[in-house]
Every structure is written in structure tokens, then in C-alpha cells.
Design a protein around this nucleic acid. Sequence first.
DNA 1: GGGGGCTATGGGGGG
DNA 2: CATAGCCCCC
Length: 756
Amino acid sequence: MSEIIEKSFAYLDELNDVQRKAVECISGPVMVIAGPGSGKTRVLTYRIAHLINSGVAPWQILSLTFTNKAAREMKERIERVIGQRANKIWAGTFHSLFARILRVEAHRIDYPNDFTIYDADDTKSVIKEILKTMSLDTKVYNPGTIRSRISSAKSNLITPKAYARDEELLQTDKMNRMPLVHQIYEKYVLKCMRAGAMDFDDLLLQMFKLLYQNPDNVKDKYQRQFQHVLVDEFQDTNFLQYAILKQFMDYEGSEKNICIVGDDAQSIYSFRGATIENILQFENDFADVQTFKLEQNYRSQHHIVEAANGIIGYNKKQIDKKIWTDRTGENKIKIIKTVSDSEEGKRVADLIIEQKNRYGLENQQISILYRTNAQSRVFEENLRRYNIPYRIYGGMSFYQRKEIKDLMSYMRLVVNPRDDEAFKRIINYPKRGIGNTTVTKLLQLAEDNQISLWECLPHAQVTARTESLLAGFAKIIAECRVKAKEANAYDTAHYIAKKSGIMTAMKADKSMEGMGRLENINALLDGMQEFVEDDEVEDDNLDNDKSLARYLQNIALITDADDDKGETNVVTLMSVHAAKGLEFKSVFVVGLEENLFPSFMSLSDPNQIDEERRLFYVAITRAEEYLTLSHSNSRYQYGQMRFNDPSRFLEEIPPENVDSIIPIKKESDSPFGTPKILGNFKPLRRAPMPKVNAAGFVANNPKEIKEGMKVMHLKFGEGKVMKIDERQVATIHFKEIYDSPEKRIMLQYAKLQILE
DNA sequence: GGGGGCTATGGGGGG
DNA sequence: CATAGCCCCC
């Protein structure tokens, strides 16, 4: 007996003193301040394992992480220590776990349990709709800005009414020439309610409401269940998230078993409402907090650790701590200066080749980090040229593609017919002759009666023809709903794709893009089949529910970082934000220039500069052994050449940790000659436009253009006329357009020069 | 009502 | 540079 217990506690020996104390201190409020690479994940996983070994049931543990991937990995690690039971832990992001609870409880707060989750695009579209009804100009009332105002109001538990009374908020809106934001906010909330939809903030806000208003004593249920709460990356939680955590803890006789782990120096999400105040407030809100500081960095060599310490010292507000390492190593930080962004791309790619050859690095040990996603292109191009496989995180994800959103909109409407955003998207897709006029009528009717578009369908005042078209659409959705009740997600989706006419429309399109779209649709369906056939009962699917509603819930909160399907040994390209929590043997932080990193948006506000500095701190502490920083004298930004000074952060690095500046090299002297070909990989999604020499271009009379001719187009370059139809529309294959070479050009207006 | 070309405009990080 | 929305013609 004792042997078994001893054996099962063996993991404690893998911890250093502080880590072990943080793991063993299992009751009452605990705060762990964890520097980069200090074994934070290890503490969290072992702490959970230790809780379970100490008699806590896995389902009584709520573990909140930043990404679902982090949660999944943590569960796997715990499973290795305590076995299968680990599955029952409630581990995930705030958003995904609360969505899961709301799926069961939403009816108690006047939402359907099958509520839709609106993404950022849906939200903006709702706001645009409101602006239209209020006759406000979207140039002045920027939907994106309004969205973030509403989001931050929700994140701070400010209701529309409270917003309308808040002098400071009103003042800010006035200064932005948007005095009516509070009205838009109010309408927005009503519209979402009407549509049975929650946006990302609602997943938190409605969860809070559920606990705070406590209908049917539902609060007790969750308070009793979640005996132990753990929160990772606490520095990036917002007021609302913290308010929910306090709700869980707030009852008579509560043991307040809450363990937060974070690092004030790595707080990088204040733009979406995260606040370091939460860390500082924690000790005030909970009595007798036990605090542990993890200060030993196991990840990075000492030059990197010292550089990080050096730069973060420029920030004023900090929790006192000293990050140190006993790792040695001679690699100093390299700084590259280039003349242009394209050269920056080339130099980084050259250095990657060099590191791979000289140090035997694998692709997967290398990462390129940038401040903005828009910077990825030059690196993409150069890696591609050297045949180095890579993967870009962020940017447009699979689920944001048009064809995927179209099919998903059908699914959404089938699950929740009140989903107005889905409705608008597909009412006339595929084309069924229901145009803008009709949709406008429906929108007006919905607005007048405060009901959803779906509910308006039978009552629209339209011509008999349109009426039957609308009825046809309603019939399709109704039939799909019947199917959805009895069939699983995959079968329903198949049925929908067929009934809706999407499949027919897709298959009719034989163009290159069309084929690609069909491929994506099929990929989505394959993914759904996988979802249905996966017989492993995951803990967040205890009932093994394979319905369409369930599938949509799973998919709505997936991000790029969550699924790492396919290629594994690839160079990683991502924003610094996305790199949080990751580590690589070699890291390139690029674009270290004033106006870019730090971002021009932050220059006027010292607090924001501090946040940029923390972001830089996060960036360089991702590196284990090799850290290379680059900046360029000039770069193309928004279509213009810009000239930026080197980032102030470069000067803040202690000189003793920096290698002498590497001089600019000429194109020809790549350190190892011509790079060798290394495996194959997916082609670049978006090829650059060809460069056409405008001088010397003379457009021919369109009447002279005939099939089979070689022509020059000012924008698309050289192409061959494949076909000219009866309406004088030419199908031209442009040889320099890689992703979709076939364009349909109206001859009447086209500027084409005949080449031969 | 539908489609494509053209013009003006904005421009960060993400669940 | 990307793209939303305008505008024009079928």
C-alpha cells in the first residue's frame, strides 16, 4: 500500500524547492509569480496531479488556460502521471468551458441552449446594420472601433444603461465624434438577444450573469463542483473574468482554493481589457494568500536571460523578482540591419539555412516572430525560395474562408433559425433570385417588430414570385431541421450541402478557385466525419453528443493555434502575441523598428510603450539558444515606402549580451553557397502580382482581340486568350498569376495589348 | 438582380 | 497594399 503511494508521488522529486512548495500547498488561495521558462506548466500539471492523488475528484478541478491546445497538452501530461481519470478534469479556455456550461444553462437567462456564437465578423456586421438604421456614417462611426468599445464595456461589467450614464466614456466617445456609441451598444445587445446569439464577450458576461443572478440556485451547483480552480496566464485576464472567478469562490464556508499563475512582465493583452490590476488585487481580495516566485529560468542561455532582464528593467511598475539561469553558452544575441524589408526576408532565410547546416537545427526548432501579421509575406517568399517548409499561424484561418462560412451559415441557421447573421449570408446563396430589395424589406420588418429575419419570412409584402422563392428557402431550412433532429452532424451537413444547392453550385464551377473551394468544403465535411466517428469519449463531451449543434459549438472557439494538423517539422511564423507560452531553440524577432515595434499606435502613451516592451520581453524569452533580431532601414507599409529608425528596444539590450552587428551582405555571398533543396511543402497561398512595365504599354482596340492570342494586361501581365463568349467576355489565362490564373475580362472595358 | 472593374480608404495584437 | 463598397452595364 505505502509503496503504491510512494510511487505515485515520485513526480515531486522532479521539482525544485519553490516549485514543490507551490505544488504541495493545496488549500487556500495561492499565487505563483512565474518568470519565463521557470517551469510554470510543470507546476500546474503536477499540482493538478497532486490534487487528484490527494483525494480530489478530477471533475472537481477547473483549470483555465489561454488556449485549448495548452489545456489538451496539460491533460496529456497529467494523464501520464495519474492515468485515464485525467480526462474528467475541466480544463480549457475561459471561453470554451463557459460556452459548455451555458449550453446547459442558457435557458435560465433567456437564451436558447442552442445559442449561436457570433465571431468578430458577425459582430461588426450587426453593428453596421444598426448604423444603417440610425443613418450614421460608417466613416465616422468605425464599426471596428465601436466593437472594441462595446467589448471593453462588457469586459468591465458596464451595461448599456451604465454606459449612458458614464461621463468618462461619453466624453471619450464625443472626442472621437461618436457620441451615440451608448445607443448602438444598447441596440446591439437587444439584437444579439433577438438572434439568440452570444459574442465572445457574452460567453463570459452571460456566465457571470448566470452566477450573479443565480436563477434556480444554479450557482450552488457550480460552486460545489469546482472545489479547486487554477488559472494560467492570470496577468492576461480581464475584470470580468476575475469577477467570475470570485463568484465561484464566494459562499459560506468556501475554502477558496484558487491558484493563479502569472507574470506581470508578460502582460500583453491590455488592448482587450486584460489588466495587471488583477494580480495586484488578488492579495487584497483573498486573505492569507500564499505567494511563490519561480525565478530560475531553465529555458534560455544566460545571454538571453540577461538581455531580457536588461530591457524589462526599463519598465517602472513591476513585481519584485530576479530571473536567473545557470545555463551557460557563448551564443550572444545577433542584430541584423538591412536596407529593405525584402532584404530582411532574405537575410533571415539565409541565416536559417546557416543555422541548420552549422548547428544541425531542425525546422521545427526555428521560429520567426513579428509584431504584425502583415509582415509575414517576405519571410514566406524567401523560405519558399529555399524550399524550407513553414507554417504561418494567425491570419486567415480555414474557418474564415468564404465557402466554409457559407456552409457553416446554413448549419448555424438550421440549429438556430433566429441567427440573423447566418440568415443574411445565405438567403440568396446559392443564387435563388432573392435580391437586395427583398432583403431590405425583411430587415425593415424585423426591425419594426423586433423579431428575427426568420420569423419575418412568411409575412413579407412581396410579389407572388418572390413569395414562392422565400417559401422555397424556408422549406429547405425546415427540411434540414428535421434531418438535424435525427441525424448526426456529418450526415446533416451532407444533407444541407445537397439540399441548399451548394454542392451543385460548387461542382459547376470548374475554375481553379472553384476547385479549391470544393476541396475546402470536402475538407470541412471530412472534419465533421472525423468528429462523428471519433468514439473516444472526451470529457467535454461526456454524453458523446454527435449532433450538429454540438459540432458548431466545438468549432466556434477553435483558433489557429489549437489545431496542429499535418506537417510537423516546419519553421513557425507567427505574431509575438501568438508565441506566448512557446519556446524554440532559435528565434528571429524581426521588424524591430520605431513605428512598428513599438507600434505607432502606442508611441504617445508611456503605458502602451511599457506594454510593447513587455511584448518584446515575451518575444526574446521564447529563445533557448539562438536569438537574432533584425531591423530594416526601409519597408513597404500600406503601399508606400517608409523609413523607420531602429527600435528603442535594441538600444536597451545590455551591450555585453550582443554580438557585434553583422554587416550587410551582398546578394551573392550566402554563407554556404546555394542552399540545398529540403523536402517539399505547400505552395504559397497568395502569389505576388506580376510587375508590368506600364511604359510602352498600348492598349489595342478590343475588337481585335481573338481567341488564342497572347495579350498583355496592365495588372495581370502576360496571358493567353482561352475563350471569348457571345457577350464579349474573354477568359484569359495569365501565366504569372499562380493562385487563380484564369480571369474573366470584359473586352469592352479591358485594356489589353496584343503581343502575338 | 447580378457581376466585375475601379476608387477611396484604412492601417495592431486575438478569443 | 488589401478590400469594401460604389458604379456601371448587362
